[in-house]
Structures are given as structure tokens and as C-alpha cells.
Design a protein around this nucleic acid. Structure first.
Lengths: 252, 252
DNA sequence: GTGCGCCAACTGGTCTGACCAGTGGACTAG
DNA sequence: CTAGTCCACTGGTCAGACCAGTTGGCGCAC
């Protein structure tokens, strides 16, 4: 039998979508770079030869994707924004909310991610970066005496440094996103933790052990300790029935 | 000194944003579920007491986020969509396009991700799942005789099974997203690969070795093989200067 | 000449009302 | 009971209007 030509299903492309495409293409080509300004809406109306409603719908889409920002009255027009992970985080948060994603999955993912990042980092780290790691430990220690938010921030700095050492910004972005979603889910509970100081001290101790293992070049042990730390830190917020699955992730 | 009240910087909330928020909240509460329909635009105009332009801007935002879909003429109104990773992929693709993300970072990320997933899967897998893995190998072998797209699909099925065995849908989503972005970047080059059949056979061989290691319960070896496979498969598309960084990821 | 305050020409946000092509359910003819 | 027709209603787009807010330059006072 002869093969009839393969036709693709075609759905109508709306005018505002073509505007979005054109602007995104200009961005991809480098004709538009963050910090630059778009022409005003009325000017875009003339350039694209469509109505203002259509231009505005396109701008709203771009704005919700974190590509541009419009401010009323600004004579320079909409601003092209640099990339931010917030739009990414929004999507993952939505994924979590639809409940196709449980807290234990998020934490399990971080255990796997962070463990892998630390294992890589323990191979790639330079002596200077080891010093930096030590410095973040000191910062965490100091932050404990301030408040939980400060400690959380210092902890974030630690993990960001790990991601940077592993030379992969996607790991960093990923960690950032998932961490943000997790904290969004349980921040209210963490704030009410009675023995938060003890928890922070224990977490600090774990981090110090991780750094020791990294210094010794024992990536395997470092990763295991990191997963253990993550588990101890968050397990209390996970339903008992799901704790076992997480516990299984600790061992290699 | 007394603490003056902490005022937050306030930016004006546009009407369309409040509509988006209300609909997303309804979705989060479960008042709205995928498959349901929103009232028609003109009905929403009445309910929210705003103009149609405003309602439409809100709908465009929701639509670009993959939350709803409007079809002209549909008397049932806009449809609430189930979650899809395509919006997520769009964001990551944007991240890659802005060039804060190189191909080697994407591939390195997949090496780390996939290795970790396989390591976990080799611990959690049941005998039945091992059989499933064997079956996907057979499917890959068959697909080689069809074409590259078929092989690629079979390969995808393999990795999705791995992610499922590791009991973490985020791994699956993550793999899916990054894989899609990578293929989007190099699909044109892959299509022109002269010796694609040899490449596919080699890839199949690697996969079989991975399954062997999983069967033996040697997660460590399985992960290493998986990273090696990924490297061999994609390294050709990465600039020489960055290949070394990737090669360093192969070893544990 | 210099500094300051005012003003007008813009901006984006929202609204009203209109037209069109297309959809799909109801209704009717067989 | 089926098949075909039709029309009410849908979303897509447009045109034009008003408003509050920003900003940069102009003119005034010193």
C-alpha cells in the first residue's frame, strides 16, 4: 500500500499568540535583551497592525511568563526582564497543588538531588571552595542565634554553594525551586516548632559532617550524610505511611 | 528603641490578576477540577463585574499557564485542563534559550538525575518491574528496525519506567522536561547522524548492561553505566572544551 | 545662572459596544 | 428513530473612549 501524505492536525493560531512568538523569537535571536524596553502598547498596535486588546493579551501572557513587566505611566514602555526562576517555581507549585505531587515526593526528590550534587561536588571541589564551605558553616552557626529565617537563609547559601561547586546551574535552579515549594507547604508548621533551636543545632552538626566527608574526598559518605540530614529535618512533616519510602532513600 | 510597624511595599494588583487568583484558588480548593468547564466569558463578565477585556486577559494568562483552554464557539465554555508538564518544559526551554544554560549543563544534569534514579530503582525494584525492564529492552531492539523516532520513544519508555520504579513522579517529570529541551536543541543534528543505526545498537547494549546491573542489585554499577551511556550518546553534540566536565561525572 | 515646582503629554488599566466565523444542541422533516 | 437543518451563543478581534498615574521638560522664582 502507498503511504498517503501525513497531515498534521492544525489548530488555529490566534493573533496574540503570533505576537508572543515574534517577541520571544526576537529574544531568542538576541535582538531583545533584558533591560531593554518594548514600544508602548499603542506603538505595538501600529507595528503589529492589530487592536490594542490583542496586543494587551499578548503582553499579559508574556508578563505572566516573567518575560516582561508593564508599569502604568512608564513612558519607556514595558521592560524586558532577566530570567527568574519564579515562573518555574510557580509551575512546580501548581504541580504540587493539583496533588499529583506529595510532600514526601518533593522531599525524596531533594534527598536524591542534593545527595547527587554533593557527591559530584566532593570530586570537583577546589581547596578554595572547601574554605568557602567552612565559611558557610560558621555563618549557619551564627544564624542560629538570630532566628529561624536567618538559619534557613544560611542553609540555602550552603546548598547553593554545593550546586555551584558541582558546576551545574540547573541543579541550583532545581534545588531552589523544589526547596521553595517545600517551604511554601510547611513554613507555617516549621514556624511553630517548639524545639527549633535543637533542630537547627542538629542540622548544623549534620552539615559539618558532610563537609568533613567532602574534605576527606569521600563523596559516597558525604551524600549519605546529606540524605540523612534532609530526612531528619523534614521527616516529621511527612505522614508516617510515607516515611518508610523516604527512609529507604537514605542508604545508597 | 521601639520597633515601628513593618510596612510592606505595595504594588497595585490589576483586576485580571485577582480573577486569575480566584480561579486558581478554586482549583486549589478542589471547587474546580480538570474536565469541568468555566462559565462563558460573558457570564464571567457578570460574575466578576468587570469588562470582557479584563476577563479575557485573565483567561489568556490561565491559558498560557496550561490551566484552561478556550475554543471558539464551544457553548460549554473554557475547559479546565489536567496538569501537563508542557508549561514546565516551556519555562526550562526559555531558561536554556537565554543561554544561562548550556547543552552540557542539561546533559550533565540528566547524567546526574538519571544515575541517581537508577541507583534508587535498583534497590526498590520488584521482580515484576525487572520483567518490565526486560520488555522495554525488547521494544527498543524492535524499534531500531523502524526508525530513529521509534527508538527514541522506546528509550523514553525505558527512562519513564525507571522513574516510576523509583517511586517519584518528580524525577519522571524532571527527566521528561530536560529530555524534551535537549532534544529540541539537537534534534536537527541527530536526524542527520550518518551512523544512527550503530549508535542505536550501542545505546541498546548499554541499556542491557544497566538492566543486568539492576538485576544483580548493583545500583552503583548500574548508575555508572547509565551515566556512561548518556555521555556516549550526547557527547558528540557538546563543545570539546566542555566534554571534560561531563566526563568527570561518569565516575562516581 | 541655578534650583525648584508645576504641567502637559504621554503611559498602561479598564470599560463599552460592536461584528464575525464557527460550534453544537435543539428542532424538524423524513 | 434517524438525519439534516438551523439558530442561539461562543470566543476572537476590533474601534474608540475615559481615567489615574508617571515623567521629563518648561518656566518661574530666587
Amino acid at each position: 500500500m502507498t503511504k498517503s501524505p501525513q497531515f498534521q492536525p492544525v489548530q488555529p493560531v490566534r493573533a496574540y499568540q503570533r505576537i508572543v512568538e515574534q517577541i520571544e523569537e526576537a529574544l531568542a535571536r538576541g535582538d531583545l535583551t533584558p533591560g531593554q524596553r518594548l514600544p508602548s502598547e499603542r506603538e505595538l498596535v501600529a507595528q503589529f497592525a492589530v487592536s490594542r486588546s490583542t496586543v494587551r493579551e499578548a503582553l499579559r501572557v508574556l508578563e505572566s511568563n516573567g518575560v516582561v513587566r508593564s508599569r502604568p505611566g512608564d513612558p519607556n514602555g514595558p521592560e524586558i526582564l532577566p530570567f527568574s526562576s519564579s515562573a518555574l517555581r510557580k509551575q512546580v507549585a501548581r504541580l504540587a497543588r493539583v496533588d499529583e505531587l506529595t510532600l514526601s515526593e518533593l522531599i525524596g526528590f531533594r534527598m536524591i538531588m542534593d545527595g547527587a550534587a554533593i557527591q559530584v561536588a566532593s570530586r570537583l571541589r577546589t581547596p578554595e571552595q572547601l574554605d568557602e564551605l567552612e565559611a558557610t558553616l560558621v555563618a549557619m552557626r551564627d544564624a542560629i542565634d538570630v532566628d529561624f529565617a536567618a538559619f534557613s537563609e544560611a542553609d540555602l547559601a550552603f546548598h547553593e554553594l554545593i550546586a555551584r561547586i558541582s558546576r551545574n546551574s540547573l541543579i541550583q535552579t532545581c534545588n531552589d525551586v523544589v526547596r521553595g515549594v517545600v517551604l511554601g507547604l510547611i513554613s507555617d508548621k516549621i514556624a511553630h516548632a517548639p524545639n527549633s533551636r535543637a533542630l537547627m543545632l542538629e542540622s548544623l552538626h549534620h552539615h559539618a559532617e558532610v563537609v568533613d566527608a567532602i574534605r576527606a574526598g569521600n563523596g559516597h559518605a558525604a551524600a549519605r550524610l546529606a540524605r540523612q540530614n534532609m530526612f531528619d529535618y523534614y521527616a516529621g512533616y511527612v505522614p508516617d505511611s510515607e516515611q518508610e519510602t523516604l527512609r529507604a532513600l537514605i542508604e545508597d
